[in-house]
Simulated scan of single mutants.
Amino acid sequence: MRTRWLWIPLLTLVSGAAAVAGQCPDLLQGELPKLRAKEQINLCEQFAGKPLVVVNTASYCGFAPQFEGLEAVYKAYHEQGLEMLGVPSNDFKQEAANSVETAKVCYANYGVTFTMTEPQAVRGDDATHLFRELARQSSAPKWNFYKYVVDRQGHVVASFSSLTKPDDPQFKAAIDKAIASPP
């Protein structure tokens, strides 16, 4: 008789977890390894229901100084709920050979505080699920520092080329739109 009462909280917990998983948009399904950390980033747990900027980065790209502008945007909008995810990639042959150097460029050289992953494939058949879904909703990155603005439901509001600087008014307008989207 006592064991029956133990099942009720367990079933409630399991059904609650299933409900959360059901609310997670396809874009945010899965995990990615956090840069220079032993932990995994559960994309759904960390970003579901939040406006998000996703950018593929490369340590030795001529656009790497955009890290400063991205950090400024992150700091300016984070209080409004904006999250940012940087995904280093060597798909364009400009990423450091090891994650120690990648972390140095991001954290020490540019002072990045937004979430960064270990280097990942962002194009083609080897692309992570996140970037396959970003490409399905808009287009695959054509170079490093391609920027995607995602609303609270996991839909790409806009994507921007490497040439678009983080202080660009259209980029900021897309972020405003993502922030204003209903949860």
Rank of each mutant, 00 (worst) to 15 (best):
residue 2 R to M: 12
residue 4 R to E: 11
residue 6 L to C: 07
residue 11 L to D: 00
residue 13 L to P: 00
residue 14 V to C: 05
residue 15 S to C: 08
residue 16 G to S: 13
residue 17 A to C: 12
residue 25 P to W: 01
residue 27 L to A: 07
residue 27 L to V: 08
residue 28 L to S: 02
residue 28 L to N: 06
residue 34 K to S: 10
residue 35 L to C: 01
residue 38 K to Y: 07
residue 39 E to M: 01
residue 44 C to F: 05
residue 48 A to C: 13
residue 49 G to D: 01
residue 51 P to D: 02
residue 51 P to F: 06
residue 55 V to W: 03
residue 57 T to M: 01
residue 63 F to Q: 10
residue 63 F to T: 10
residue 64 A to L: 04
residue 68 E to V: 13
residue 68 E to F: 10
residue 69 G to P: 07
residue 69 G to H: 05
residue 76 A to P: 03
residue 77 Y to F: 15
residue 78 H to E: 14
residue 80 Q to R: 15
residue 80 Q to W: 10
residue 83 E to T: 09
residue 85 L to F: 06
residue 87 V to R: 00
residue 92 F to T: 04
residue 94 Q to M: 07
residue 96 A to C: 06
residue 97 A to G: 13
residue 97 A to K: 15
residue 99 S to T: 14
residue 104 K to I: 02
residue 104 K to C: 02
residue 106 C to N: 10
residue 107 Y to P: 08
residue 109 N to Q: 15
residue 109 N to Y: 05
residue 110 Y to S: 08
residue 117 T to D: 13
residue 117 T to Q: 05
residue 120 Q to Y: 04
residue 127 A to N: 07
residue 129 H to P: 09
residue 131 F to N: 04
residue 134 L to N: 03
residue 138 S to H: 11
residue 144 N to E: 08
residue 145 F to S: 00
residue 146 Y to G: 13
residue 147 K to Q: 03
residue 148 Y to M: 05
residue 149 V to Q: 06
residue 154 G to A: 08
residue 155 H to G: 11
residue 156 V to G: 04
residue 157 V to M: 03
residue 158 A to M: 02
residue 166 P to R: 07
residue 169 P to H: 01
residue 175 I to M: 07
